[in-house]
Simulated assay, not measured.
Amino acid sequence: MGLVALATTSQGAAQSAPTATPAPASTPARFGTQTVSDDARATADWVATSHDNQSLPFLIIDKVNAVVFAFDGSGSLRGTAPALLGMAHGDASVPGIGQRKLATILPAERTTPAGRFKASLGQDFEQDILWIDYDAALSLHRVIVGRRVDNRAGRLASPTPSDNRISYGCVNVPPGFYDGVVKPLFTGTVGIVYILPETKPLRSVFAIPTGAAN
């Protein structure tokens, strides 16, 4: 993504160089005053400076801290919210889990996988959701009511991430965040979702240069 090389002729005559197309500005992601983990900041800065998002909107999901950051294509933070995540700790989906019935998925298999995903809005049981990995049945959606004992809304509202592991793997967020931030960002376009690892080193999942993350 550098500048276009200057043109010459076989006769060696001086020619006007074509207008170079400047590369997109490489600036760190802008979090403002938002508190953010070192891994989330390193990932956001890498995305913004490397243009890995290809100017598409993107989300960063920090599983350790159970929080979602939403950015527009230029790397500006558009919103953040707590999230509910897979009950089991881990960074990979069980093979074939997207084709299984929920009742057959064991607690140890209920992971939210880490990685880079191309995401788009879609439908599931007459509700619009953000599909992160369709084949693995992984999505981000408004928090569901679920069983009363699960108290999903209460878990989202709690001040710590210690009780946010309850889902089968999908990412549950507050309805206001989904409707006011995620849905507008992804309407009419695809986007990128970066789910940070919790059991693997950050740079084993994303191509972040050495020294960019603690």
Rank of each mutant, 00 (worst) to 15 (best):
L6V: 05
F125I: 11
N164W: 01
D133I: 09
V145C: 01
A137F: 15
R142S: 06
D72Y: 05
T33Y: 04
R142W: 00
V190F: 09
T35P: 12
A5V: 13
T111D: 04
G73I: 11
L138V: 03
F206R: 07
P82H: 05
Q123V: 09
A108C: 08
V64S: 08
G211E: 10
R203A: 07
A7F: 08
T8M: 10
L138S: 04
T27R: 14
G96P: 07
G75R: 10
F186C: 02
A108N: 11
R165D: 06
N151G: 00
V205N: 06
R155M: 06
R116N: 10
P57G: 04
T27F: 08
I105D: 07
G191L: 01
G115A: 05
T9L: 13
T8H: 10
S26N: 08
K118L: 12
A153I: 15
A88V: 10
G90W: 03
R152A: 09
H51V: 00
V182E: 08
D150V: 03
P175N: 05
I195S: 08
A5P: 14
A88K: 08
F71N: 10
E109P: 02
V64K: 14
P174F: 09
T187I: 00
A40F: 09
A23L: 14
P113K: 09
S16K: 15
P174M: 12
G2D: 09
V193Q: 08
P184A: 03
Q54P: 07
V143W: 04
L106W: 02
D62M: 11
F177R: 03
A103C: 10
L85T: 04
A5S: 13
I192L: 11
L202Q: 01
V94T: 15
I129M: 02
D163S: 15
A66L: 05
A92K: 15
G96S: 11
P28L: 00
V181Q: 01
L77M: 05
F117Q: 02
D45P: 06
I97S: 01
N214S: 05
L202H: 06
G191Q: 05
P113R: 04
A42P: 08
V67Q: 15
R116D: 06
L196T: 10
V173Y: 01
L59S: 05
A48S: 14
I129W: 03
A83W: 03
P201L: 05
V36R: 05
G211N: 07
D45Q: 00
I166S: 10
G90E: 06
L121M: 10
A7I: 10
D91T: 09
I208E: 02
A213Q: 11
A14K: 15
S16Y: 13
D91K: 13
R100K: 13
P28H: 03
V94Q: 12
V143S: 06
D179I: 04
L59H: 03
D133K: 12
P174E: 12
A83I: 05
I192Y: 07
L6S: 13
A108L: 04
